[in-house]
Design a protein around this nucleic acid. Structure first.
Lengths: 145, 145
DNA sequence: TCACCGTGTTAGGTTCCCCAAAAATGTTTA
DNA sequence: TAAACATTTTTGGGGAACCTAACACGGTGA
């Protein structure tokens, strides 16, 4: 029962915090700001709002943590991120940096149905015509040289 | 030489106006508002800004037109829209309403490289393994019943 | 211990995009 | 043509997300 609205930007904050926690153990304002390419005051604004929504544990000057609910949202977003990035790279043969950027935006909007279908399509194609796929990727890589 | 920045939302206004002009001949505040799901005052705000940027011909109470530059941007966005929608529907077999929604968001962010690659991939697959594709779509449509 | 410095926070302000209410203009009809 | 109706515009205001400048905290080295 998720009655609260989480904006695209808030999802990005949650995802960033999730990854910082996963990779560095601690979540710090400075690091969130660096990753999100904003200044620290913007991070504090965001933290206050997310705390009010019960998605982040935050007391000023204290350590920052995602709540269960916050982590759940972050994981959902991140899993879409991973899926989309993989699809762009492995199926469409898009350069990693571009794939990353596109996934990063699309993940916040893409419909569940589309996510599922992309997953299925990738599996189907890789199983049914792996050679054709390889051929396509090969051509694209050669063009890039 | 496009030095001015056009926000995502502005792109949407331009695209809406472009389609209204194409389909109804005239562009009216009321219709833009309906399509964009905003109230008329918001449309007027947007029109003023777009006029300042030279993307729209706008004098109050007068007829509304896109300038060449405005139409150019609208066409670029719209062509991405069409491509993405087609890809989602024809290749991934996503239901039209969902495809429409997703395309509508993604079109504003998707990288040129990705657009090109999607185009190429669709052509390649449709040529190299049309039967496999048909099989995939058939399964998905059957599941939906 | 305390002064310093990095980090975090507050205060105040900007831009973008939206709205409701009311005023102005345009159009249609009696 | 003038009243009634539809459409557009102005006015005034709000929320989201960002910023700079200044201030507060807290761990560290002298």
């Amino acid at each position: 029962m998720r009655w609260l609205t989480v904006s695209k930007r808030e999802e990005e904050y949650l995802e960033t915090m999730y990854l910082l926690h996963k990779n560095k153990g601690v979540i710090r304002v400075k690091d969130i700001a660096r990753v999100m390419r904003v200044k620290p005051p913007s991070v504090v604004d965001a933290l206050k709002k997310l705390a009010e929504k019960g998605l982040v544990e935050y007391e000023k000057y204290d350590r920052i943590l995602l709540t269960d609910e916050g982590r759940k949202i972050a994981e959902e977003v991140y899993s879409k991120h991973v899926l989309l990035t993989k699809f762009f790279i492995d199926i469409l043969g898009i350069p990693p940096e571009v794939a990353e950027q596109d996934a990063c935006q699309f993940e916040h909007y893409v419909h569940e149905v589309t996510v599922e279908r992309i997953k299925e399509f990738a599996a189907f194609i890789q199983e049914q015509c792996p050679y054709v796929l390889k051929q396509f990727l090969k051509e694209k890589i050669e063009e890039a040289d």
